[in-house]
Amino acid sequence: MELLDFARGPAISVALAIFVFGTVWRLVALFGLPRMHDLSVPRPGTPGPIVAGTKEIFRRMWPRHEFSQLSMFSFLNGYVFHIGLAIIVFAFAPHILFLKGLTGLHWPALPNNVVYAVGAITVISLLAALIHRLTSPVLRLISTMNDYFSWFITLLPVVTGLMAASHLGARYETLLAIHILSVCALLIWFPFGKLMHAFLIFISRGTTGAFLARRGIQF
């Protein structure tokens, strides 16, 4: 079996299975923990947990002007690579074809050159994020291997994808196989590390939104 056949066949299938089951398991394990039933009386006239939680998910997308002393780098750079990754995954024609094979859904793609440019910007943004993490005393202290490995495993598919697209360094088939394998690595790691924040962000923001709204705290 060629490397590309392996990557396209058993590797991606196993990786997807681990991604799905791992993610579900992690969420089930969380929701299986005891829940605290808040017995305080909510402030009258405050919204319920669903409304408040949903509002909070959107409210936290940007810091309030009251926190003007915040360095905006984390926010801005975070948006750059998150949006970049989303464009690469969901707006690149070959990726849409792959997703169509998985789900049956498809949509128009962006021109390849645009996606390549976004890929390059995303790599730069991810490198900037790493430099920030390594040079900030706070981030250096609080960072764990989880952060660095998650960073690496996120960067890898972008870099290998760009290499495959530009036929850089090896045969296209080999580069494509490496790219697919790097995506497999990301999918396998996803449920085990901090990449799970892609799902957890909705739960944690929603939980706190409901908590604050119950008390009548408005921002």
Partner: peptide, 18 residues
């Protein structure tokens, strides 16, 4: 003391330092 919501918080931190 680790109720569900606290576990979510522990799992969710991305260590951004803000």
């Amino acid at each position: 003391v680790t109720a569900e919501h606290l576990a979510v918080y522990m799992e969710a931190c991305v260590r951004c330092g803000l």
